[in-house]
Simulated scan of single mutants.
Amino acid sequence: MGDQIAHRLRVEIIRGIIPPDTHLAEDHLAARFDVSRGPVRDALRQLETEGLAEDRRKRLYARAMDLRDVEELYTVREALESLAIRLAIENASAKDWDNVQRIVDSMAAAAEDDDGERFADADMAFHTSFYANSGNRRLLDAWRPYQRIFAILFELSDTSDIASATEDHQGFLDVVRTGDVEASVRRLRLHLTLAKGHVRDVLRGLAHT
């Protein structure tokens, strides 16, 4: 329940539905979600860890995501995902990569159906597969807190041309499957640079709505 509440609040804070500096009162949120204060407390702890809530004299307030946050998030993600790709190329089997290909195939199916939500889910699964295939459990655990935020950013910023985005992910996977580590990391950097640009545009748009 705490995870579900955290997701709802995370979406609303990032989208600006909950304005910056809003007091995130446990009793008010418990009444809103019709739960005890325990799950709300767990949710708020997650948001504080993620930088979407801040403590001011024992009271938590919503904190907007700004362009500096985007830079920091993508810098950390590039470091984590570059390592994940390096380890995955070293450790993953052909069967593991076949499973990633199936994810890309599901992206293509979502594109045919013009299903942006299903595409965003597959997009997240694609990137998480590098961490899963790295063979390093702690690296996967390190990605998990960021995964929750990026899942929302994916939904907000994924291009409307999901057919082209699917082709981009297919090309990305094709490079990774060659086993060329440096080319794969370069492809990741380009991929994240473009994605970061989309997120910046979305956040600027939200700030003016």
Results as ranks from 00 to 15, higher is better:
residue 159 T to D: 13
residue 162 I to F: 04
residue 72 E to F: 14
residue 173 L to G: 05
residue 80 L to C: 10
residue 124 M to T: 03
residue 80 L to H: 06
residue 98 D to P: 02
residue 118 R to W: 02
residue 134 S to A: 13
residue 154 F to L: 04
residue 178 T to H: 13
residue 124 M to W: 15
residue 196 K to I: 09
residue 87 L to Q: 12
residue 180 D to W: 15
residue 159 T to S: 15
residue 126 F to W: 01
residue 67 L to R: 02
residue 165 A to M: 05
residue 189 R to L: 10
residue 86 R to S: 15
residue 85 I to Y: 07
residue 184 S to C: 12
residue 122 A to M: 07
residue 140 L to I: 01
residue 73 L to I: 04
residue 167 E to R: 10
residue 121 D to E: 04
residue 172 F to N: 07
residue 75 T to W: 01
residue 62 A to S: 13
residue 75 T to C: 05
residue 132 A to I: 02
residue 87 L to C: 05
residue 82 S to R: 11
residue 117 E to H: 12
residue 121 D to I: 07
residue 197 G to Q: 06
residue 92 A to K: 06
residue 153 L to H: 05
residue 91 N to G: 11
residue 89 I to Q: 09
residue 160 S to D: 07
residue 62 A to G: 06
residue 73 L to Y: 10
residue 191 H to W: 11
residue 67 L to E: 10
residue 119 F to I: 01
residue 186 R to E: 12
residue 189 R to A: 15
residue 104 V to L: 06
residue 114 D to A: 14
residue 120 A to T: 03
residue 125 A to P: 05
residue 192 L to Q: 09
residue 149 I to P: 01
residue 154 F to S: 08
residue 106 S to Y: 10
residue 149 I to H: 01
residue 74 Y to A: 04
residue 91 N to W: 08
residue 94 A to K: 10
residue 101 Q to L: 08
residue 68 R to V: 10
residue 107 M to D: 00
residue 176 V to R: 09
residue 86 R to F: 11
residue 197 G to P: 08
residue 82 S to D: 00
residue 152 I to T: 02
residue 191 H to L: 08
residue 106 S to R: 14
residue 138 R to G: 12
residue 163 A to C: 06
residue 141 D to E: 11
residue 128 T to Q: 13
residue 82 S to L: 08
residue 179 G to V: 12
residue 89 I to G: 14
residue 163 A to R: 13
residue 110 A to Q: 01
residue 109 A to M: 06
residue 167 E to G: 12
residue 82 S to F: 14
residue 166 T to E: 10
residue 124 M to D: 03
residue 174 D to T: 06
residue 164 S to C: 04
residue 155 E to T: 06
residue 115 D to G: 05
residue 178 T to E: 08
residue 68 R to I: 03
residue 162 I to Y: 05
residue 168 D to A: 15
residue 138 R to M: 10
residue 194 L to E: 06
residue 127 H to D: 01
residue 121 D to S: 14
residue 96 D to A: 12
residue 106 S to W: 08
residue 158 D to V: 13
residue 115 D to C: 07
residue 158 D to S: 12
residue 188 L to R: 07
residue 197 G to L: 09
residue 120 A to N: 02
residue 187 R to H: 10
residue 182 E to Q: 14
